[in-house]
């Protein structure tokens, strides 16, 4: 429990793009094998741009891991560790505890070192949720970034607990009887926030300033912090590579993936979408082939409307939590 929120504690520093572009930042080196238009490397890039201290990164098994560290090469310019699929949070916990003990016992020099875990939605929502919950409950000083591309893209686009309602994946195909995933995704951000850690937030690659500010807050917390990063996947979503950022914007404009933070228990909306500016969810769905069966050969208004209702309901919930009244 803290009296002061991270936002109050962490004096905001202006983000100067021009300067940052020329600064030596430990980000992913060029030449990694992620797909064109994949948002995952942007998630890493913006996260690492936000760091002000040395960092150790952990990845769970997934696209990001297999595409950036093909032996004997590596794209990582920070120390980087991969172990398995479901345990990025536990490995990061171990690294944090190890550094803490070694520094306390004067076995290594004392210096602030960020421990940052990157994991996809499969490794976070599903197989890794137990390790994540354990790490959050124990309150290791680490930042866990979930890049949510809403399916097991690495193994060939199977559905996960993050896959949207109605989306077609290889294990929830747009079938003749069941048109795509019949379940709504779980709310991992609320699950994380329910651990009462100091800082939990959603970020989006289309809003880099907001992204970096939030990572800075997460790193400033001396608790475990959780970041949900919306991360379009052109391959799995059957979307044009050039549309990644536009899809990411639509995710926010439709209120399907809102931008907010939970700072010491306080919900705060960081990107208000006014009623009149709120884009119908259909506009988001239409950009991606994984929803094509909702429009062709026959329009599935039932699924589209249910999605819209669900988005509206979640959005109203969030507004209430943030204490925001729609006019």
């Amino acid at each position: 429990m803290t009296e002061t929120t991270i936002t109050e504690k962490k004096k905001e520093k202006p983000i100067k793009w021009r300067e940052m572009a020329f600064e030596e930042r430990p980000v992913l080196a060029a030449g990694h094998r992620l797909c064109a238009g994949c948002a995952a490397p942007l998630v890493v890039k913006f996260t690492m741009m936000a760091t002000e201290d040395p960092s150790i990164c952990v990845s769970s098994t997934g696209c990001l891991e297999v595409s950036t560290t093909i032996y004997p090469y590596t794209a990582w310019q920070t120390p980087w560790v991969h172990c398995a699929f479901e345990n990025a949070a536990a490995v990061a916990s171990g690294i944090e505890a190890g550094l803490k003990a070694l520094m306390r016992k004067n076995k290594i020099p004392k210096r602030k070192t960020n421990v940052i875990a990157f994991s996809g939605d499969g490794g976070t929502y599903d197989i890794g949720v137990q390790a994540l919950s354990g790490a959050l409950e124990r309150g290791h000083n680490l930042t866990y970034v979930c890049y949510d591309n809403s399916a097991y893209e690495n193994t060939g686009i199977q559905r996960s607990g993050a896959t949207p309602y109605g989306a077609a994946t290889t294990t929830s195909p747009g079938g003749k009887v069941i048109p795509g995933k019949p379940e709504f995704p779980k709310d991992i951000v609320k699950i994380a926030a329910a651990h009462d850690v100091q800082y939990v937030a959603t970020v989006n690659v289309a809003y880099p300033k907001d992204f970096i500010k939030k990572i800075r807050k997460a790193l400033a917390s001396d608790d475990a912090s959780f970041i949900h990063a919306f991360s379009p996947c052109p391959l799995g979503w059957r979307a044009d590579s050039s549309l990644t950022i536009r899809i990411a914007e639509l995710a926010v404009e439709t209120c399907m993936y809102p931008l907010y933070e939970v700072d010491c228990g306080e919900y705060r909306l960081t990107k208000m979408i006014k009623k009149e500016n709120k884009v119908p969810v259909e506009e988001f769905l239409k950009t991606q082939g994984r929803f094509r069966h909702l429009f062709k050969p026959k329009r599935r208004d039932d699924i589209i409307n249910d999605t819209q209702k669900w988005v509206d309901w979640k959005w109203q919930q969030l507004l209430r939590l943030c204490g925001v009244k729609e006019e």
Binding site: C83, A90, V91, S93, G94, L99, A101, L102
Partner: peptide
């Protein structure tokens, strides 16, 4: 003088050990 990590499973026990040992502990 040890960090005692009361993990939530043996899977995480070994995963924590992996992380700590890589950190040099």
């Amino acid at each position: 003088d040890s960090e005692f990590i009361p993990v939530e499973s043996e899977h995480s026990a070994m995963s924590c050990c992996y992380g700590s040992s890589i950190a040099g502990a």
